[in-house]
Write a protein that binds this DNA or RNA. Sequence first.
DNA 1: GCGCAAGTGCGTACACCGTGCGCTACGCTG
DNA 2: CAGCGTAGCGCACGGTGTACGCACTTGCGC
Lengths: 241, 241
Amino acid sequence: MAADEKPIASVWTRPRKQREQLSREQIVSEAVLLLDAEGIEALSMRKLGTRLGAGATSLYRHVANKDELIELVADEVYGELEVPDAGDPAGWRAATAGSAHSLRSMALRHPWVASVLGQVGLAYLGPNVMRMSDRMLALFESAGFALDEADQAMSAVIAYVVGVATSEAAYLSMIARSGKDEREWMEGLSSTVEQAVREYPRLKDGHASHVGKDPAKVREENFVYGLDRVLDGLEARLSAS
Amino acid sequence: MAADEKPIASVWTRPRKQREQLSREQIVSEAVLLLDAEGIEALSMRKLGTRLGAGATSLYRHVANKDELIELVADEVYGELEVPDAGDPAGWRAATAGSAHSLRSMALRHPWVASVLGQVGLAYLGPNVMRMSDRMLALFESAGFALDEADQAMSAVIAYVVGVATSEAAYLSMIARSGKDEREWMEGLSSTVEQAVREYPRLKDGHASHVGKDPAKVREENFVYGLDRVLDGLEARLSAS
DNA sequence: GCGCAAGTGCGTACACCGTGCGCTACGCTG
DNA sequence: CAGCGTAGCGCACGGTGTACGCACTTGCGC
């Protein structure tokens, strides 16, 4: 022992330099992990800090505040989207449908995105959002839309997908919170539904016609149906000019 | 003074029975007011209680928890929707378009709804939601859709409108938080936008073509464009059978 | 090699949140 | 008048976002 312990203390006791050094990228990607695992309401600066082996307020050196973190995180997952290259005009419809499916499945992979879209806007300045907007716009231009209309057409498709995904994601996270299976959950609620639906024969029949089917498949079919209608409408517009 | 003050005390000093009596309806409608005035992040049980002249925790006698309150509040504003009666099939398109406009303008009147849709789902059991779903379904059935397809068609239209409204509402609340005018805000951001958009000529031109126009009008036109495409797609489907 | 500025992490603190619990006071039924 | 059910409330607990100032490390100019 003896003597001034401070300088010795040794490499081992000293807290590894002064932490491994945080970075914005690290923070954002750990936040995505946390969000995927526990949902939006479980994201707190403290918990995220702990996960990174850092104190709660250390994150503020790299991120202005929680809202900014959420914007970063939202843009991050937009980076997962796959938008095909603009090829021949004939492939336009398939390419657009592919992008739409990619967007939907991203939103279902990260259901918390849906609860964040209403705060964060959709198309704002994040590099990944911009890149994917640009690529989609290229798709529509190559199909024959003039720039202004291409923008409107793209927005329409995105709006449709976001709308579907919002409602699906909300539904799925509700189920996830209950800890049950999608099927179990529907069975558990069926009596309540029956009662609520009593006065509305149309809704009742609608519900009845889904019973017994695979809910995930039904959701997918509904998505495709609407997407086809949107694309039909756009295609008609295209061949009119 | 003198004597046992209790029974006298008089109607005036006595704290008005024991408060005016809260009710679920009162709570919900005051919550809507608060949300409209200050946005979603300003809604707290304490603040809402105070506004109602009640203690914070008194609300829990009428509402299970904050999440349930939010579900109630969401259903409440769905009650503002106007869905025309199902009349002759010819009027189907106009009636649907009317419903869509009604939904969009509700969402812009109450921009917080957008940030709540991702948590609350859309179509779940609230009486107002059910009533409006039923009426819209009637619209599609009277147009000639079979029940199952009517349901898909309705969902498609709603998804589109929700998607547009989500992004518009997020955008508008962002501006509202900044305290600026929509136009001022866009000007304040224009240099940032220009920089972000530098590498993407398509996005750049798209932005450029909007400059100087009335932003609210642009948003409305974009909405109508997409809605027309969706309705075109549905109408085509209808005349094919 | 040294000293200093810039940048990073963290402990503390504050104001606020949702909500469980148990007490009180009222209005109603018998 | 007794008693009971119910509504409101004060308090407390554990959690939140984040401002602030201190301690330390790192990198750069001499």
